[in-house]
Design a protein around this nucleic acid. Sequence first.
DNA 1: GCCTATGTATAGATAATCTATGGGTAGAAA
DNA 2: TTTCTACCCATAGATTATCTATACATAGGC
Lengths: 112, 112
Amino acid sequence: MGKNQPDLLPGTLDMLILKTLTRAPLHGYGIAQSIKRLSDDVLTVEEGSLYPALQRLLLQGWVKAEWKMTDTRRRARYYTLTAAGRKQLGLELSQFEQVIGAIGRVLRDAEA
Amino acid sequence: MGKNQPDLLPGTLDMLILKTLTRAPLHGYGIAQSIKRLSDDVLTVEEGSLYPALQRLLLQGWVKAEWKMTDTRRRARYYTLTAAGRKQLGLELSQFEQVIGAIGRVLRDAEA
DNA sequence: GCCTATGTATAGATAATCTATGGGTAGAAA
DNA sequence: TTTCTACCCATAGATTATCTATACATAGGC
């Protein structure tokens, strides 16, 4: 069978993760749950997308990680947004809005 | 140097092409120009993205192609939207809006 | 003891895009 | 008549980002 529909829009995952971390530090699983819940189950972040993305963000210095215990008494890696990450988020947000606006103009057939 | 910024949002190209063809049949070059102009130069469709995309659309039966002469007296391949293509466009539009809405909710941090 | 939810992580496949390149014509300018 | 620019099509290969599938591990409820 297969779903034949992507779980999210390619190119938006890093932005979504960074945004999610502006509220509070979260572990990977929590980030995925948060995005899923806030999007009313429209966006699903698979593990195979999430953890590589978090590695990318760590490497870029946009988040930092720390092992802690969850309130359910399990080891988990908590990610925190860095200053550079906050700046990057701002950049990605403005680029995203610009592109979405441009797509909207094409879809609405705005004539010069 | 290099630009370090994508020319468009991955996953949206087919939709943009189909939408562009709802106005009138166009050749590849014309499609690219149209998208560029309507988006105020924000979206740029490279040939290496455009022609493979048109091949995909042909294979799916969403467009059909015909060689004609342009008003500048050159051979060009004109693409026309098929009924199936129109249906597909509707599908992609609604999915796109759903995903964009979901992303918007996450970015605005809508709490349940 | 088993099941479910919680948690991290990687390997490999897949898909879509970009870069780079090749070919070719019309018309204007030099 | 050569050269330049705009017009036109197309593909190979690299790159990037995502998904699928898998592996491992623990807490708590049944």
